[in-house]
Structures are given as structure tokens and as C-alpha cells.
């Protein structure tokens, strides 16, 4: 016998009752004789699965509800052999230890490998026409906000373009054309960036920093081509979309502060993804320089010019950086040059 609360269907009326078990039947009796004893087949009642120390909820075929503090005997009757399985997992020490160890490992695998892998493959399905539209919009947005027309003379621009055309001829690419643009920008400083459709923008400051030396400009150009050939921008976008969905999906119901924290986590992941891209683009440039019979030292020299311009940053900060340390990149290129 268990004392229980009986909630009548259709209203808030509640009565104290006693319940008992007779074989496969649940017997409900009213001590205050509000109603006659009721008897229900086990097959016809609906039981909410056991959860923590919550009282048990039993829904009768009449839609009345019984709430009762369960004990071992009642739980066994209500749950049958398999019913309480989830609760067993949730209260089992072995499952607890497995979860405490397994969750961090799985989170690391999913966010560190699963999502980037998925993003890389998803990005392959983006058609060239979409990349073209997206690049065009991005460039016009940048032109409107942070870019100014180049102050380089037409002759300088043409001669640099001419050098680049030789580079493009020398490499093996599926892309019809690489479109090089020059711009002035205070925000970007000495920089070059590639848009997904093969548009590559050099800032005047970069051209000046490399003292218009074609050999160095070519090395940087090859690095940017590496980003385009390996579809890095689209992979970044795909990664960011997939990661955002995954994070909202897994932790959508936690507080804002925690989400902000997860945001930091996801930007660390993104930056690592982006650092990996820089290395891939570097390696692409080095490989192509070799194939063209030039020296990877060209790339190292271009990076050296950078290093003089921007002083090296300490190691800890590298987690929050999109680019690997310049010193490491110079070493990488010089090692390649020595091997030649």
C-alpha cells in the first residue's frame, strides 16, 4: 500500500488515495470514500519513466493522474524489466565515470576534427558562380568601407601584373583567371588577401614594404593562390556556420555568460583552423616556387620584411591569432630552401 495523490481529469481537484498492487492490476482506493475502489490493468496505464528522485507519475486510462513516491517494489512493478533503463544509466557509477571521461574526448573530437572535416567537404559543393557573386559583394563592401583606390602608378601596376601572369602560366590550375587588384588601406596596412573566386587584392603598403621586388611579390601571390586553390574561404564560412549550429544545438539552453564563453572557445577553434590554412598556403607557395625553379627563400625573404614591420608576439597570444607566428613561417620556408 502506498499513499498517493489522485488528480481528477479536467480540473485541479486532488484527493488523497491509497494504491496497491494485485498481480497485474493497480488498485486505487479512497480512504475518505470519495469514490468506489478502482482497478486498472497494467497494460492500460501509462507510466512516465523514472527520473532521479522524482515521485512517479501514473496516467490512468481515465486520464486521471496519480502521483506517488515510488520505492523499489513499486518501481519494479511500474518499469518492468526494461523500463527503468535510462534511470539505471543515469545513476550507475560506471556510466558516470565513462561519461565524465567520454564527454570531453567526444567534444574535442567533434569540434576539433568532425566539424572541420565536414566543413571542408561541404565547401567543395559551393559552385563557382556563388563564389563569384559572394566575392564581388565582399569586395564592393570593402571598397565602400576600408579600401581606397590604389596610388600606385599605372606602369607599376602593369609591370607587377605582367610578372603575376607568368606565375599563373607556370602553375597548374582549374581556374580560368586570377584577377589582381591594388588598393590603399589604413586598416589593413601591408597586406594581401584572396577572395574565393580568385580575386587577389594587394595593398599599396605591401608593395612598398617589399620594395616592389617582383620575386617577393610573386611569393606572396603564390601564397594567396594557395588559399584560393584549396578553397579556404569557403571552408571557413562552412566551418563557422556548422560550428554555430552545433554549439546552439548542444548548449542552446544555458545562460548568456556561458554562451559568451563558448564563443571564445569557438573562435579559438576557428583560429586554429585558420592557422592550419596559413600553413597549407605557405606550403603551396613553397612547392610552386620549387616547381618553377625558384627558391623558397623568396617566400622567407618576403616574410622577413613582414617580421621587421610587425614585432613578434609571445606564444600565449597565438591561440587567439588567425596567423601562425612569422618567425615559424620564415624558418619553415628557409628549411625548404636549404633542402633544395
Amino acid at each position: 500500500m502506498w499513499s498517493a495523490q489522485f488528480y481528477h481529469d479536467g480540473g485541479s481537484k486532488a484527493s488523497a488515495v491509497m494504491i496497491s498492487l494485485e498481480g497485474d492490476k493497480l488498485i486505487v482506493t479512497s480512504p475518505e470514500s470519495e469514490f468506489e475502489s478502482l482497478s486498472f490493468d497494467k497494460d492500460l496505464i501509462q507510466v512516465k519513466s523514472k527520473l532521479g528522485g522524482l515521485p512517479r507519475e501514473i496516467i490512468l486510462p481515465t486520464k486521471d493522474l496519480i502521483i506517488v513516491d515510488g520505492d523499489r517494489e513499486l518501481d519494479a512493478w511500474l518499469d518492468g524489466d526494461f523500463g527503468g533503463r535510462l534511470n539505471k544509466w543515469e545513476t550507475n557509477r560506471r556510466w558516470l565515470i565513462t561519461s565524465v571521461l567520454g564527454v570531453p574526448i567526444l567534444v574535442y573530437l567533434v569540434f576539433g576534427f568532425g566539424i572541420p572535416w565536414f566543413a571542408v567537404h561541404l565547401a567543395d559543393y559551393v559552385p563557382q558562380s556563388v563564389k563569384a557573386i559572394s566575392s564581388e559583394r565582399t569586395l564592393s563592401a570593402l571598397d565602400y568601407s576600408v579600401l581606397e583606390p590604389s596610388a600606385l602608378s599605372e606602369d607599376t601596376q602593369l609591370s607587377i601584373q605582367q610578372g603575376f601572369r607568368e606565375v599563373v602560366r607556370a602553375i597548374d590550375t582549374d581556374l580560368d583567371s586570377y584577377n589582381v587588384q591594388f588598393r590603399q588601406s589604413e586598416t589593413f596596412g601591408p597586406n594581401a588577401f584572396a577572395l574565393p573566386d580568385g580575386t587577389i587584392v594587394f595593398t599599396d603598403a605591401l608593395v612598398d614594404l617589399l620594395e616592389r621586388e617582383q620575386r617577393l611579390l610573386d611569393a606572396i601571390f603564390l601564397h594567396e593562390i594557395g588559399h584560393v586553390e584549396q578553397n579556404h574561404s569557403m571552408q571557413m564560412v562552412a566551418e563557422s556556420i556548422v560550428a554555430t549550429i552545433a554549439i546552439s544545438y548542444f548548449v542552446g539552453d544555458v545562460s548568456g555568460a556561458v554562451e559568451a564563453f563558448m564563443g571564445v572557445g569557438s573562435s579559438v577553434l576557428q583560429n586554429r583552423f585558420s592557422q592550419a590554412h596559413e600553413w597549407q598556403a605557405d606550403d603551396y607557395a613553397i612547392m610552386q616556387l620549387r616547381a618553377m625553379g625558384r627558391s623558397p627563400q623568396d617566400f622567407a625573404d618576403a616574410m622577413l620584411a613582414f617580421a621587421e614591420f610587425v614585432p613578434a608576439s609571445p606564444d600565449v597570444v597565438s591561440w587567439f591569432e588567425t596567423h601562425p607566428g612569422t618567425t615559424d613561417r620564415i624558418e619553415n620556408a628557409e628549411r625548404a630552401a636549404e633542402q633544395q
Binding site: K48, G52, L54, L86, E90, L106, Y249, F250
Partner: peptide, 29 residues
């Protein structure tokens, strides 16, 4: 904690599908 972490494990293992069950159990709790 025990309920939460076991449900999280199941959610990760099922690539997120179990999260619906996890949410119901959390809210019920």
C-alpha cells in the same frame, strides 16, 4: 550532474539526436 553528463554523452554519441530526449528529461527534472 549524473543525469546531465550521461545525457550529454548519449547526445554526443548519437550526433545530437538524443538531445531531444535529454531536454525532456532535464525539463522534467
Amino acid at each position: 550532474f549524473s543525469i546531465w553528463i550521461v545525457n550529454l554523452l548519449l547526445t554526443l554519441v548519437t550526433l545530437g539526436i538524443y538531445s531531444a530526449w535529454a531536454k525532456v528529461r532535464t525539463n522534467r527534472y
